[in-house]
Design a protein around this nucleic acid. Structure first.
Lengths: 134, 134, 134, 134
DNA sequence: GTGGTCTAGACCACG
DNA sequence: GTGGTCTAGACCACC
């Protein structure tokens, strides 16, 4: 019931870490449609995070269309078809990748070299273990 | 002769944008060893940026070992072998990529699907024109 | 609780003096892992230094890998093993010493004479009191 | 007749490099009493250094009591007894060393460890070749 | 002219 | 409250 492992040494803001963790949990299917999220207060208390920070993360997730909040009731995972989710994952990945690839191009890295680097990184990250979703 | 296109609305700090642009120019070979950079004041004047901001960017580049500055003389590209540069580019790319790939893995994207996405993004970015290295 | 004695007439920049003082405090174990540093504004207020100058010193310490800063929270001593610290101290000392020894050699000082001078200086500096490590 | 090898990549100011080179040449006996130095113009032309910079170096050497200038005639090495020179070398070395040793002490390095480091650096620098004066 | 330091003060994002 | 960025302007050492 309680997850969220925040790295307080990271330079990524705490609220961004929360957003990312929940986002990835939804994408991977760990959180399912209409499942309730812990209330802001509960999350803040159990994870020892400032309630304002949790609130900001929830707001961000709502803006991303990933959750919906019913005042006085709680926050819930928004229902999505698996196609919609897959599309979102691909779109998110592509956006992040384009920046890096464009930078590589500006650095003069030849297309074939870049592909080699990409595939080697994938092999390295996925090679560690076979659990693709954890 | 005059480059640097700064996006003042970006959330990336101006000094970081300058660092990245010059870094990529060095990596790609557009700026060569011991070539002088525009003086801090000149760059500041021509780009309408505060001299302190330019100075901070130059200082950062010096910390990265990419340029050196001498009071009373100017700032210059530090001499590096092409092997060293290539190594730096690959290391930089790999670091940035690992984060994204790891996130894709946590989202439950299968290895083969991810490879397809990667290659398609590369094709898209490099497809625009055929000058990959300049 | 309050340290830092800055010499405003020294030719060593103020921000460098701050870096050195904190660096030595970490090396000697006076500042321990994850201990909070005074906030930039507090340090600036208590030492009558401009906050920008303190910030620059902290940034430098972060680049050296000695502290980490998080917006909204504060700045903290980075955790290091005592082996790592010892190694850093020795490396720092050796680098500084090599310059002087090389100069002595160029001045024609015989090896044995130099050793005598070195040991006499050590005796003089350490002789003042017997608390070498605190 | 012409020496001076200036490192334009060094962060040590050019005028300081000139001072140090001449100073060490005097200390080691390579330059003898009343020997003439090249004129400022000649030095500047042959070494491709700004005359103002050479002039500043000579002025510094004069302030150090190492040379004397006769307007319209030239600059010369000041006569010193070998005892005086030896004393100066030791005093110069000691001053530079004290700073480093004091810093080591503040870092908590035990006296015996420091001595070991010192002797190992001396061995390393002097071990390379047996010409102590070149 | 060059780069480097320092101050002052404003504004932003984060918790 | 915290750190981070940016501007403005002064002063220094170096060439």
């Amino acid at each position: 019931m309680l997850w969220l492992s925040i790295d307080y040494h990271s330079e990524e803001p705490v609220y961004r870490q929360i957003v990312t963790i929940i986002q990835e949990a939804i994408m991977s299917g760990k959180l399912k449609a209409n499942e309730p999220l812990p209330s802001i207060r509960e999350m803040a208390r159990s994870q020892r995070i400032n309630p304002n920070t949790v609130a900001r993360a929830y707001r961000e997730l709502e803006n991303l269309g990933l959750i919906y909040s019913r005042p006085g009731v709680g926050s819930f995972i928004r229902a999505k078809s698996s196609d919609e989710i897959e599309e979102q994952v691909i779109s998110l990945l592509s956006t992040n990748l384009e920046e890096i690839v464009a930078s590589a191009k500006r650095c003069g890295v030849p297309e074939e070299d870049l592909k080699d680097i990409l595939l080697s990184v994938v092999g390295k990250v996925y090679g560690g273990d076979k659990n693709a979703s954890n």
